[in-house]
């Protein structure tokens, strides 16, 4: 996936943004609450994302990440609060919102009984693309699936299906791309490809909103990260800022068979603290997982273990 190819693909996109949003914010979330029965999936979430940002919503399973994406992509209506994309209210002007977004959901919702080309054709027609034949050819090439164009999707590997899913979301050259857990269950090589893709999109000014519970993914890709826990936004900032707030270094040591962590401001501080600890110790730079543990007392990957 060559960067120049992506640029060429995107340059052929017509500008569809209202002027106000070009200078303003791309995504505005204003006190969104979503309640399912007795469960408060989102609790007064407020968030502003600028154009061209790669924003990562980080949190364990069930924190409300997918609910956020569903509300922003008009699939779910909030119990209270407002949200706007490109200056369009998601509830009052849903068609305008749908015209500028692309969505790759967590579950691969391709028609597996149809071919890759047929999947893209139906999607492109729903979005009234003018040069559909050419766009499909281009996007399949960028996704590395040209030769599979007329194969049934059910015969694709998991990684190929995921690539096709993201390719479909990009077919319309959206201003905002939503990726819900884009690399779950993928092998490291495919994961790297998707990371490269997101970086290329960033170069081209596309706003990317992604959710993940992989720490390294958020650190590798995102210009800014929000940490969600039980429907509440508990931290917001660049990965550097967030790590700086809890301390840049971590001292890990063993105590009664358990691994303990101490967050330190500097490597020297960690060194001096380690003098009093017995057994093996590790001093390392802090990561977003440490931030999450500090803030909630839980691990992000907890639900999976």
């Amino acid at each position: 996936m060559d960067r120049r190819q992506w640029t060429a693909f995107y340059l052929s996109a017509p500008p569809r943004l209202p002027l106000a949003s070009v200078f303003g914010h791309m995504i505005n979330i204003d006190h969104i609450t979503k309640i399912y029965g007795a469960i408060r999936a989102l609790d007064s979430l407020t968030l502003v994302i600028k154009q061209g940002e790669v924003f990562g919503l980080l949190g364990p399973n069930g924190a409300g990440k997918t609910t956020t994406i569903k509300i922003l992509t008009t699939l779910s209506k909030p119990t209270s609060g407002r949200a706007a994309i490109g200056g369009h209210d998601v509830e009052k002007e849903p068609l305008a919102v749908k015209n500028i977004i692309g969505v790759a959901p967590q579950e691969i919702n391709l028609d597996k009984e149809l071919t890759a080309e047929q999947n893209l054709r139906v999607y492109g027609m729903l979005h009234r693309l003018d040069n559909l034949g050419r766009d499909i050819k281009d996007i399949l090439e960028l996704a590395g699936l040209s030769e599979r164009s007329n194969h049934l999707v059910r015969d694709f590997s998991g990684g190929m299906q995921r690539r096709l899913l993201i390719a479909r979301a990009l077919l319309t050259k959206p201003n905002v791309l939503f990726l819900d857990e884009p690399t779950v269950g993928l092998d490291p090589q495919v994961r790297r490809q998707i990371w490269d893709l997101v970086r290329n999109l960033k170069e081209n000014g596309t706003t990317v909103f992604l959710t993940t519970h992989y720490i390294e993914e958020a650190e590798a890709l995102c210009t800014r990260v929000g940490i969600l826990s039980r429907g509440r936004l508990i931290a917001l900032g660049t990965p550097q800022e967030l790590k700086g707030e809890v301390g840049g270094f971590v001292l890990e040591y063993q105590e009664n068979g358990n691994t303990r962590y101490i967050l330190c401001q500097s490597r020297e501080e960690a060194h001096s603290l380690s003098q009093s600890k017995k057994g093996p110790i590790i001093i390392r730079e802090s990561n977003l997982e440490d931030v999450f543990i500090k803030l909630t007392g839980e691990r992000i990957g907890k639900a999976e273990q």
């Binding site: 699939l75 919702n109 729903l126 979005h127």
Partner: peptide, 14 residues
């Protein structure tokens, strides 16, 4: 099950 219907909801069609 397949969640393909959601594509229609997320597309700019009435």
């Amino acid at each position: 099950h397949f969640r393909t219907f959601q594509i229609f909801i997320q597309s700019p069609v009435s």
